[in-house]
């Protein structure tokens, strides 16, 4: 059986006055039915573009995206409508992604009516209540007739998740969906999304800048670390985060917060990066894009050849890394 989602050497460029901007290049990955892939990276790494392409909102400039084995750029009419129902996107900002003049009930009822998923009013109300229960907004009757401004950020984000669930999607793209909510709320949102994955079998593309959140969410799935448009490390999350091989992933892991002040102060200062700032995407360094910041930089090769993702030799799993220096060690 084909995977649910497959990216094959996907590339996206945008024209600009300085020449084409390569937002993502040669991005390949698969997400199984009910699987989780976390995409992690800093600003400008292409993670949001990756999500938009997966949602069919942006076309790849090159390469193909397969959904259930079919090329999504060929979808038209009823096929496209079916695809749109099976794939849902949850945005970062629940303040702007909900219509401010619609009540929670109206927001959730609209797609149910549009796609004729309920037969009558009684069933509609019943379904809306059920959705609110699924996202832990209990008792549901307290929320039905509230407007977004009457809800907290965490509650709004739950409504956004409930809206995504109205159409029973197989695949949810969550783009920084928990990064705007407070810490005490964040974990309950993450746990709720994980429950959707485990109980309803919804597959997730989970996009975040925060490796610790990615690691938590995709512990049973895979993680792709992106840097300036390319995947630099890819594989099962425990391996990518515990046995990180790429110098960039290692630097990200080293920058993770630790909830112990003693450890935080004694933390090894290795994996030091040259410059703390990501270069501009308008001016991506030649060869390996990470080479100007890399502690393992080798002149003559790293600044010339673009490294390819290759399997870690000793590892039998699918752990891949794009760094010849690490691979030949």
């Amino acid at each position: 059986m084909s995977p649910l989602v497959e990216f094959r050497s996907v590339e996206r460029t945008y024209p600009s006055r300085q020449g084409p901007l390569h937002v993502i290049r040669d991005v390949s990955f698969t997400i199984e039915r009910g699987g989780i892939l976390a995409v992690v990276g800093e600003s400008g790494c292409g993670k949001t573009t990756t999500g938009k392409i997966a949602a069919g909102l942006v076309d790849p400039s090159r390469g193909t995206v397969l959904f259930d084995g079919e090329n999504i750029s060929g979808f038209k009419g009823p096929e496209l409508s079916r695809f749109r129902r099976r794939v849902q996107l949850i945005h970062q900002d629940p303040y702007s992604s909900l219509n401010p003049v619609r009540t929670v009930y109206q927001t959730l009822a609209a797609p149910l009516k549009r796609f004729r998923l309920v037969k009558n009013r009684t069933e509609l109300l019943h379904k809306v209540r059920e959705l609110l229960l699924t996202v832990d907004l209990t008792p549901p009757d307290d929320y039905l007739y509230k407007y977004p401004h009457q809800l907290s950020g965490g509650q709004r984000q739950r409504v956004a998740v409930a809206r995504a669930l109205t159409v029973n999607p197989d695949f949810i793209i969550a783009d920084e969906s928990v990064s705007m909510v407070d810490v005490s709320i964040r974990s309950s949102l993450l746990n709720m999304l994980l429950r959707l994955n485990q109980e309803l079998g919804v597959a997730f593309l989970f996009i975040t800048h925060d490796l610790s959140v990615a690691r938590y969410f995709s512990w049973r799935g895979k993680t792709a670390v992106m840097y300036l448009g390319r995947i630099v490390e890819y594989g099962p999350t425990p391996e990518v985060t515990r046995l990180s091989a790429h110098p960039y992933s290692r630097a990200l892991v080293a920058s993770l917060p630790v909830s112990d002040p003693r450890v935080a102060r004694l933390r090894a200062q290795d994996d030091e990066v040259g410059s703390p700032d990501v270069p501009s995407i308008q001016n991506i360094p030649p060869g390996c894009a990470f080479h100007p910041r890399c502690p393992l930089y080798m002149a003559g090769s790293c600044d010339r050849d673009v490294p390819e993702l290759m399997g870690m030799r000793e590892s039998e799993s699918l752990h891949q890394v794009a760094c010849p220096v690490v691979l030949t060690r």
Binding site: S152, G154, Q155, D182, V183, S184, I185, R186, S187, S188, L190, N191, S212, V213, R215, Y216, W219, R220, P238, R242, V253, L256, P257, V258, S259, D260
Partner: peptide, 27 residues
């Protein structure tokens, strides 16, 4: 109790796939 919850809500390196504390409700 709030500090206990906040500390438990930080996902960190040692928390391999372990569950995070979530404080119910909102401020």
């Amino acid at each position: 109790p709030y500090s206990v919850g906040l500390i438990g809500a930080i996902p960190d390196l040692s928390a391999d796939g372990a569950s995070l504390v979530s404080i119910p409700g909102s401020p």
